[in-house]
Write a protein that binds this DNA or RNA. Structure first.
Ligand SMILES: [Mn+2]
Ligand SMILES: [Mn+2]
Ligand SMILES: [Zn+2]
Ligand SMILES: [Zn+2]
Lengths: 147, 147
DNA sequence: GCCCGTAGTGATACTTAGTATCACTTAAGG
DNA sequence: CCTTAAGTGATACTAAGTATCACTACGGGC
């Protein structure tokens, strides 16, 4: 089941607690990595009662509106949804090996955007980064990975 | 019709020159802003002979493989394809007002990625930025001049 | 605890972006 | 020219996500 903080944040966003939202958030929490909507639908179906397909999408949308979930577009244009501890707009470093998504702090990004604004006389109002690579843990494993 | 440099780059990528590729590239060149596949299909249909829908997608894929076209995912998750003068992987500042897409130089991005790698012990192998805002011309900043 | 308005749900039908297939055409190199 | 592999178009298909609408249930007020 989803942790209490998730429920608090759902309420804080003016949304209702429902078993469906609990289930979806719970599966995401359990997985600890970005999941596609289809994977989520299937996983939720397996773990106990099911959730309608439309509701999975609506729930993801709601949770994303509430800042609890964010989605990244993986190389290959696949959308993957992930549970975010930190609220508000932020970005991720996504490991292609294990799928872990590390949060990027705003103050790591802001100076970069500021530099862009200066260099191009462009006023940034929204940015979305997808940064892919290998996390520290998976880098250590590299010697033993299958080729 | 697409400019000669586009044709050269198609050839350089080991692909054939076809009227369809000329048309698609030509429409993109003409538009000077990112277009969705649907817009392209329609525009190509209007301007002279048509191009099959499947071929529009295939052509965009080919041109993207050749580094001639790139697509950005606009807020709202709409893919838009744009003609790129500079070859190789790069990023864009997209104006939401007029659609203009300014190229981002690699040396503007590299230091940022390097900083991320250091701060997170993460090995970046691919990044995709979508930066949206308002370009100099659209800010109404008519006094601005290139410097 | 019960009531009730409204947010949320599920089945289903639909849309839209993009892909697979396959017979046919055409670019381009010798 | 001839040849052949790359490319095309019609069509059928998949996969992601949305619209509809009757029904359900969350939760604030009492
Ligand atoms: Mn996050
Ligand atoms: Mn470009
Ligand atoms: Zn990893
Ligand atoms: Zn502009």
């Amino acid at each position: 089941m989803a942790s209490d903080t998730v429920r608090d944040r759902i309420l804080a966003a003016g949304q209702r607690i429902t078993p469906q939202r609990d289930l979806v958030a719970g599966v995401l929490e359990q997985a600890g990595r970005p999941l596609s909507a289809a994977e989520l639908y299937e996983a939720v179906g397996r773990s106990g009662r099911g959730v309608g397909r439309a509701t999975v999408f609506r729930t993801l949308q709601s949770l994303e509106d509430a800042g609890i979930v964010q989605h990244v577009v993986l190389p290959g244009n696949q959308a993957a949804y992930l549970l975010c501890q930190v609220a508000g707009h932020h970005h991720h470093l996504v490991c292609r090996q294990c799928g872990a998504a590390d949060d990027l702090a705003e103050d790591e990004v802001a100076p970069f955007l500021a530099a862009l604004e200066g260099g191009h006389r462009f006023q940034v109002d929204h940015a979305n980064f997808a940064v892919y690579g290998t996390c520290a843990r998976c880098t250590g494993d590299r010697a033993s990975t299958t080729s």
